[in-house]
């Protein structure tokens, strides 16, 4: 194995800046790590964004338990956070900035119910709520058929992650929606792009569900310069 191939692995876990990261937004400089000792045992969102001032591609290494590291390569500076929606099964989650260029800081954040960070807005049934980029909302469903209306305020891509309800066969109960997307996909159409549950070229999407009386959590993961998303939770 070449030195180049082993180099990123050697960095992981070194120069730890936060050994007990609670998921709050932080900035990782090159070679710095953050370790969340215990993740949720349900879907959680991990968000990262290259905040370099230069035109630098960056790389993040992500490890959990004894699994091999996953590298997110060629992440260019952007106002659109990249997200990973997954159930890390209460294992630890360690994030390391292994970028080649030393001027490549990353902003990282874990998002989900009860995780420190932005205080969720209150999502009441029957009331439309505007959720800005980076904001979250939380409410409760009733034990009946419900509908969540997701609408964009402008024509730019809106990305919304929703967590709640029973888990699927992989232990996940999270759903990512793309509105004003480049194609229609999802349960009633073609397979969605990787990581998404459904996408639509329209500026709104409706999700019908009956998952009992459970908490519902939504996070607007759209670009920081987008106008926001309007959410309406209805009892049908």
């Amino acid at each position: 194995m070449s030195a180049a191939a082993t180099f990123p692995y050697e960095l992981l876990g070194q120069n730890v800046v936060i050994a007990a990261w609670d998921g709050s937004p932080i900035t990782l400089l090159v070679n710095q790590s953050a370790n969340m000792p215990q993740t949720s045992n349900g879907t959680m969102i991990f968000s990262y964004r290259n905040v370099a001032t230069q035109n630098n591609a960056g790389t993040l290494g992500v490890t959990s338990g004894g699994a091999a590291p996953i590298f997110y390569n060629n992440v260019m500076p952007s106002l659109q956070p990249s997200i990973v929606v997954n159930n890390w099964n209460a294992n630890n989650l360690s994030i390391t900035n292994v970028s080649a260029n030393s001027d490549t800081p990353f902003g990282i954040q874990a998002i989900g119910r009860g995780i420190p960070g932005p205080t969720p807005l209150t999502l009441n049934t029957g009331t439309t709520l505007a959720v800005g980029p980076g904001q979250t909302a939380q409410g409760a469903t009733s034990a009946q058929w419900m509908q969540l209306v997701i609408a964009s305020i402008d024509s730019s891509l809106g990305v919304l992650a929703v967590i709640g309800g029973p888990v699927d066969g992989t232990g996940n109960n999270g759903y990512v929606f793309g509105i004003n997307y480049g194609s229609n996909s999802g349960p009633t159409g073609p397979p969605p792009p990787a990581g998404y549950y459904a996408t639509t070229t329209s500026n709104s999407y409706t999700l019908q569900f009956n998952c009992g009386a459970v908490p519902i959590f939504a996070a607007n993961m759209s670009a920081l310069n987008s106008s926001g998303i309007k959410l309406t939770l209805r009892a049908l």
Partner: peptide, 8 residues
Amino acid sequence: PQTPLGTM
């Protein structure tokens, strides 16, 4: 000493 990791 160090160029960007993108076009310059």
